[in-house]
């Protein structure tokens, strides 16, 4: 059976390393794709089947909401979660308004597990 695929998009190396560690330790049945910004992410996922995306908001170039909207155009079934230090209510409402989840930084294993719950298939 093919592994499921998750995408992490964050301009912080630390944030990506933390997510990578959680996946390598606890989610071995997943492949993790990593991108440092929106353009990088869009190029990386071209032609891929994705199941979960964890996306930072404040990045160089396009922000996480804009990137999520672009990803949803091509991957309407993708489960996307905004992972951000910007924990203001309006940011959460903005995520909600486009139908994506919201995770407060710092991310941890429990938050990833919660994001995985309810995934199709």
């Amino acid at each position: 059976m093919d592994k499921r695929k998750a995408l992490i998009v964050d301009d912080s190396s630390l944030a990506r390393m933390m997510v990578r560690k959680f996946f390598s330790e606890s989610f071995k049945d997943w492949d993790l794709l990593e991108a440092k910004d929106g353009d990088d992410a869009l190029a990386l996922v071209e032609g891929q089947t994705l199941h979960l995306a964890l996306i930072d908001f404040n990045m160089p170039g396009m922000n996480g909401i804009d990137l999520s909207e672009k990803l949803l155009e091509k991957h309407p079934d993708l489960s996307i979660h905004l992972v951000t230090a910007n924990i203001q209510e309006r940011m959460q409402l903005r995520a909600e308004s486009i139908g994506i989840g919201f995770i407060k930084k710092p991310i941890n294993q429990e938050k990833i597990v919660a994001a995985m719950q309810g995934l199709k298939g």
């Binding site: 912080s12 630390l14 230090a85 910007n86 203001q88 209510e89 930084k105």
Partner: peptide, 23 residues
């Protein structure tokens, strides 16, 4: 470079908390 990146991320989280209080 990696240490600076990590510090930026910590500061980023700090300002996120601060901005939430201010907002």
């Amino acid at each position: 470079e990696l240490e600076e990146d990590a510090l930026k991320e910590f500061f980023n989280m700090g300002l996120g908390m601060a901005a939430d209080s201010l907002s």
